[in-house]
């Protein structure tokens, strides 16, 4: 059976600690380069701060983790890649990026409305010896290619191998948990199969508090957000001008 892996991120639980960002970077061998900045760095998982634009005690803030949304419909990046370096895995719904195929034209980055794609502006590098601390399950990407969240595909691969070794066809859901989900200290990130109506994540995605970013673009992201705060849920609504400026921090 083909799965549709996705997430429901409960923004009311997110304290903006950044554990997901670090866990993601560590799992995926993302380098920490002194030359990189917020605009040129590699942050497949990026927590951003938002506010209701209020002042003083009226002000409210929240944190929103931004990662590849794994768009299901007319996936913008998949459509534009000239050489099929991006594809939607039919079995999992994961939008996969193949760095070995990528020529670094960055057209996919201009296509992605979520800015969830990152270019390797530099050769990856670590201080002397630190390469011994890299995760053996994930290949290091060379300079000049695009990368992004692949829902810790290496973990899925390991789970499949484990299932195969045990003679099972299906993986045990407990064996496949992306690093950010595992790391979240408040259990704000829920991961599961959206195609399975019994999966709690699938059920949560239908909650009245659930929403997706830029829903009107109709790319059907598989990353849902959830909040009881109306001003946070308003993020999904079509922008209406000034509030757009007010909301960013």
């Amino acid at each position: 059976m083909s799965a549709r892996y996705g997430m429901v991120i409960d923004l009311d639980r997110c304290t903006g600690c950044g554990a997901c960002m670090l866990a993601c970077a560590a799992e995926n061998n993302v380098p920490s380069l002194p030359q990189a900045s917020a605009r040129t760095g590699l942050t497949p998982m990026l927590v951003r701060k938002i506010s209701n634009g209020g002042e003083g005690s009226e002000r409210r803030e929240a944190f929103i983790p931004i990662l590849c949304m794994h768009c299901e419909h007319e996936t913008p990046c998949v459509h534009v890649c000239p050489q099929q370096a991006v594809e939607v895995d039919k079995a999992t719904g994961i939008v996969m990026q193949m760095p070995q195929r990528c020529l670094g034209c960055r057209y996919c980055m201009t296509a992605c409305p979520y800015h969830a794609r990152y270019f390797n502006w530099w050769d990856p590098a670590w201080p002397k010896g630190m390469e011994k601390s890299l995760n053996p399950g994930v290949a290091v990407r060379m300079r000049g290619v695009v990368e992004k969240c692949n829902l810790c595909h290496a973990r899925l691969h390991a789970a499949k191998e484990k299932a195969a070794a045990a003679g099972k066809r299906e993986i045990d859901p407990a064996d496949y948990i992306p690093a950010c989900v595992e790391a979240c200290p408040t259990a704000a990130i829920h991961f599961g199969n959206l195609a399975d109506p019994r999966d709690p994540v699938s059920q949560q995605s239908h909650s009245p508090d659930a929403f997706r970013l830029l829903e009107h673009l109709d790319t059907q992201p598989k990353v849902y957000y959830k909040s009881k705060e109306p001003w946070v849920r308003a993020l999904s609504e079509p922008n209406s001008g000034p509030s757009m400026e007010a909301k960013h921090v």
Binding site: G129, S133, N135
Partner: peptide
């Protein structure tokens, strides 16, 4: 090569601070 919380631990209950996810690289710090 990687650090994760211990879910069975009654004190941390599987959680770690953000810094913990990068501590395994510290021994190689310049």
């Amino acid at each position: 090569v990687g650090v994760a919380g211990v879910s069975g631990n009654p004190v941390t209950r599987g959680a770690l601070c953000p810094l913990a996810f990068g501590v395994h690289q510290l021994n190689w710090h310049p």
